[in-house]
Amino acid sequence: MNKDPKDRGMKKWNGFFMPETIKMLKDLWQDENKTPRPYLDETKIEEMERLLSESKLTSY
């Protein structure tokens, strides 16, 4: 590894990316870290609605 005191390391490579490219890459990395939405069939949806309505009734 070159230990030249004038070498800026990776900083010298940051100027090659356009701002649009950097934004696109950040968005891509964020999309990769997202968890997919679960598939809910009608029975699951009805069960969740029932639980919500029961919790509303018992909270008063």
Rank of each mutant, 00 (worst) to 15 (best):
I22S: 04
F16T: 08
M10R: 02
M10E: 11
K23Y: 03
L28I: 08
D27W: 03
K3T: 06
F17M: 12
S59N: 12
L52Q: 07
L51N: 02
M18P: 11
M1P: 14
L51W: 00
S59Y: 04
P5Y: 05
N33L: 11
K56C: 08
L25C: 05
M18T: 02
L40H: 11
D31N: 13
E32L: 09
P38N: 02
N33C: 08
D7M: 02
W13T: 12
M18K: 15
M24K: 15
K3R: 07
K44N: 11
S59M: 12
D41E: 10
L28M: 04
K6W: 02
E47K: 12
R50W: 05
E32C: 09
M24N: 12
S53Y: 00
N2E: 07
K23A: 14
T43S: 08
E42L: 09
D31W: 03
Y60P: 15
F16M: 10
I22A: 04
E49F: 02
F17W: 10
P19V: 00
P19L: 02
E47V: 00
E47N: 13
L40E: 12
F17C: 04
D31L: 07
D27L: 08
G9N: 04
K3G: 09
F17Y: 10
L25F: 13
W13G: 01
K56W: 09
Q30F: 01
M18S: 13
F16Y: 14
K34V: 06
